[in-house]
Amino acid sequence: MKKSTLFDIISPVMAGPSSSHTAGAVRLGLLARNIYKKVPHKVVFKLYNSYAHTGKGHGTDKGLLSGILGLKVDDRRIKDIFNNEISENIDYKFEYYDNFRRHPNSVDIELYGDYNMKISGDSVGAGEILITKINDFNVSLSGNYNTLILVYKDKPGMISSVTSHLQCANINIASLSCDRNAKGQDASMIICIDGNLDADIVQSIEKMDDIYFVTYVEKLG
């Protein structure tokens, strides 16, 4: 567990009733939105375990949708999001499952639109969250850092090529993790950074050979 600060104890200001089931749900939706980049036409939320069982009583469904629509945890519209005009143009559905292999407060968010994406995450307590999977790649995204996510061909030198772009921009890396589905196939890189990354650096990395997908995910406020 991350050490609490004075600020953690006297905040957040949030829509009730539960930090894990309401505020955590909003933050999962928000981070999924930051990863997906656009407002999808359709979203399917698959809620697992405690999220499935007590989610309705805690407004977990409202929180998830509010996050996808860009609302922050203290937004007064969360409570009535299903009747708010900002949710009119999006098609959404909730499904409920039991799966003991999943975290007690767990959700899959399937986004459909200009492109499709599946994002999985857990609400790990006190409003803190973890995105654990984007499509088929295992990741670990808390939303506490600005993060660069890449999918690329698994081959020697990719990490140093990417990080040299960051070095040139004087960006410090807070953490870096990689995963791949098989040797020589698709690989993923998650780079958490201090400070902000300019769009032109993201673009220059995008233009590199054998980079399939790049997205810059801004941290949650």
Binding site: S11, V13, G16, T22
Partner: peptide, 8 residues
């Protein structure tokens, strides 16, 4: 009732 509070 899903109003805004401070989790403190």
């Amino acid at each position: 009732r899903m109003g805004t509070i401070v989790a403190c």
